[in-house]
Design a protein around this nucleic acid. Structure first.
Lengths: 345, 345
DNA sequence: ATCCGGAATGAAATCGGTTTAGTAAATCGG
DNA sequence: CCGATTTACTAAACCGATTTCATTCCGGAT
């Protein structure tokens, strides 16, 4: 069987009548160390032979993979899709590749993924998961991986973060509801593993406190961050007496679930109940009624995180280590038509 | 500066009193070639030293990276997010990693990405883009990369594909509209680069033909596959006289755009115009009115594509080459409330 | 003419594994 | 008990680049 082997740098060197070292220098774009004429000849032969570098070999020797890991709780969720697109957009401008890992909110899977990524010698890691544990990240750091956290912070981990001010944002949402006159406001939260989750609840609490309203555990509907959970939360809400007049759903999937639950229950928004969602999506404007929600800048967070990672990578080998940064982006509340003063009676 | 180097296989070998070869065999899980006692001792020392393999080095020698490339037109689009999650779910069960590439519908970016992926020695490539060109894929194939296409086919490329029957699906949609009594049915298409785009139009055409209705170029609203394009398509539709009584949007983003365009124009669905969308999303059920659409099984397509790629990778080195397969999945039309008989007069 | 310094280049070491070829000892059949 | 396998294991080659260090070449200063 005839099979043409792909040309290596050695082949190019031979064909161009130079050494591997020279070919390497030329193709790496190093100006000094070769005549313009030689450089051109090398480039031509490489092209003629259809030579393509083997980055695996290059990485082995140079100890740089130009690859970063991206851990997401759920790629199918547009919020994380937005983060991914932001990360990818920024990184691929620079020749870095991103290895995608989906954790499905499983800490076990997350650990396994980090392990594989470390084995693959990633230069950096961007994580947007709700992991409560820090050790697997710390292990990666010890092995020289720069890590940047997005959306959520991990307590006890010394790493850059890119988030929104979840506390203030939630406080603003609930403040808006309070100003409309609502007094019984329910909140649908996740399992409280992640900081964003806890901070959103804390903001809710603080807004109530500021308005002199007692915090009532019964109004905190703990769910699973998925649509299913949002839907079931509505069921529990219906059993509350007196029934809350407003509801705050703290992520996009649960917002969606709440919407179907409310529709199934036949509750009219905002006449019978006001609703504020999270992670604004384009379609929020299209449902009935158009939904007010917090705009969580997913794409931008991804972009900023990638940017931060790149500068950190660029600054390796510096004498002084760069201090960690905690970047906080704006998350405006976009008001549409799903909130109104509470019904009379 | 004191700096502890991460242990290599050599270190483990020395500490365990065996050779690198033995360590390699043990850690690779090769049963034969070592006593259970030796194996255990090696595993223990590896653990004790905190040894982690360097897959880069392993890949270089073994010529397998256990990495595949995933090219998507737009990760932020939930449809592609669904494909990504399907691919990732199937692949990560098996120790493969996926490198994500976003093409943004740019052929140039797509070519550059394929180049980088080939340099990174991917074992396989899954692409869900609307590239009309085959050569960059063919080049990857020549370099030993197995290619699987998802959602769209690339004419002139010998590769596995995983798609839906776009022609039949579109024909069914338009057939449904025709049976309701519509005679002027507009369609919003993409730029016709991709086969899915062309096939959907062809299905539209065939349905009309089957019902003895003339095909009218004016009713074909060419857009850009984005929401923006769908919105502008509505503007053009409004200028048509007589105005079409039904509209078929052929992907999720354009469906969304059409929805906002229609809303802005104040056209009531389905009283004044019927609408069928594509790439069913959960929120279609939540808008007003609940939207009928084709359910494009993104997650499943990704899953199947990954599966196909894995069996192809497993079958390398066989005497006989496996023939390419064209897998076609079901894409049901889910009817909700956005279609009705045309208005009188 | 001679010496010197910098630029161009090449030979060889190196990265950290996998794989091959080979060796010594253990096992087996008769 | 002997030759023939088999088994456990090692030494060394190898994958294909980058990087270090030595060498050659050249023009300009002395």
């Amino acid at each position: 069987m005839e099979w043409r082997k792909r040309p290596t740098m050695e082949d190019v060197a031979k064909a161009a009548g130079v050494s591997k070292a020279t070919v390497s220098r030329v193709l790496a774009g190093i100006e000094s160390g070769s005549t313009p004429a030689t450089a051109e000849r090398v480039r031509q032969t490489a092209l003629r032979l259809g030579y393509v570098v083997n980055s695996i070999a290059a990485s082995l020797r140079s100890r740089q993979s130009f690859t970063i890991g991206l851990l997401l709780a759920d790629v199918a969720n547009p919020f994380f899709g937005g983060i991914a697109s932001g990360v990818e957009a920024r990184l691929s401008q620079t020749g870095y590749s991103v290895i995608l890992g989906n954790t499905d909110n499983s800490l076990e899977r997350e650990r396994a993924l980090v392990r594989v990524l470390v084995e693959k010698q990633i230069d950096g890691l961007i994580a947007a998961t709700s992991a409560a544990s820090a050790e697997h990240f710390r292990e990666a750091q010890e092995r020289g991986v720069q890590v940047v956290l997005v959306d959520s912070d991990v307590p006890g981990l010394e790493a850059d973060t890119v988030t929104i001010d979840n506390l203030a944002t939630a406080e603003a949402v609930v403040g808006h509801l309070l100003e409309l006159g609502h007094r019984r406001i329910a909140i649908v939260t996740g399992p409280m593993d992640a900081t964003f989750d806890r901070h959103r609840l804390e903001g809710y609490r603080r807004a109530l406190g500021r308005h002199g309203i007692a915090y009532d555990e019964a109004l905190v509907l703990r769910a699973d961050l998925l649509a299913e959970g949002g839907e079931r939360a509505v069921d529990r809400l219906l059993e509350l007496a007196p029934r809350p007049t407003a509801l705050f759903a703290t992520n996009n999937m649960m917002t969606q679930g709440v919407l179907v639950g409310l529709r199934r229950a036949g509750l009219r928004i905002p006449d019978e109940i006001s609703l504020v969602g999270f992670d604004d999506q384009d379609w929020y404007a299209l449902c009935h009624p158009p939904l007010s929600a917090v705009l969580n800048p997913a794409h931008e967070m991804g972009h900023v995180a990638a940017d931060r990672l790149l500068t950190r990578l660029a600054g390796r080998g510096e004498r002084v280590e760069q201090p960690v940064e905690h970047l906080v982006l704006d998350a405006p509340l976009v008001l549409r038509a799903s909130t109104a003063p509470p019904p009379q009676g």
